[in-house]
């Protein structure tokens, strides 16, 4: 077997040592750092991207939360404003109604007072007219001119009875 030809051992060993040491140095200094760097760069890039994605996701979630909070706040504010306005308008309407009712009552009582005054005036002038009519009629019928005082009294009596 050529494998046991001891005379070839030194050359095989020497060249094995030369090639293996060369290989080891080339791998350590040149090849492995290159491959390792490529892998490391990819790993870092992926980690970086994942980190970035996580950060962006957190940011998006924060924005969504802020938006939802703003929305809830606005809704709350709107409800408050609506409630306030309703209350204010209700109060205003009640106030106006009250004022209107007061004005109407005022005018009603004023009118009533005017009517009462007019009625009193009318009644007073009616007595004068009735007294004059009574005196004129008496003068025509019996030719006696009765004085205004007696006629007035008679009219009063008659009117008392009518009342």
């Amino acid at each position: 077997m050529p494998q046991f030809d001891v005379s070839t051992f030194p050359q095989q060993l020497v060249w094995l040592a030369i090639s293996f040491v060369t290989l080891y140095v080339l791998m350590t200094k040149l090849a492995l750092p290159r491959v390792g760097r490529a892998l490391e760069e990819r790993r870092q890039r992926i980690d970086g991207d994942l980190e970035k994605a996580a950060r962006l996701k957190a940011e998006a979630e924060a924005v969504i939360a802020a938006y939802e909070k703003a929305l809830a706040d606005a809704r709350h504010q709107a409800q408050l404003t609506m409630k306030e306005t309703t209350e204010r308008l209700g109060a205003e309407a009640a106030e106006r109604q009250r004022q209107a009712a007061a004005a109407i009552a005022e005018r009603t009582s004023a009118a009533e007072r005017r009517i009462a005054a007019a009625k009193a005036a009318a009644m007073a002038s009616l007595r004068d007219v009735a007294t004059d009519v009574a005196r004129a009629a008496t003068a025509r019928l019996i030719g006696t001119d009765i004085d205004a005082g007696r006629a007035g009294a008679a009219v009063d009596r008659a009117m008392q009875g009518r009342r």
Binding site: S7, T8, Q11, V14, W15, L16
Partner: peptide, 11 residues
């Protein structure tokens, strides 16, 4: 004998 052989060549 440290000759460069076919073995060395393929190494």
């Amino acid at each position: 004998n440290l000759s460069f052989s076919n073995s060395a060549l393929f190494m």
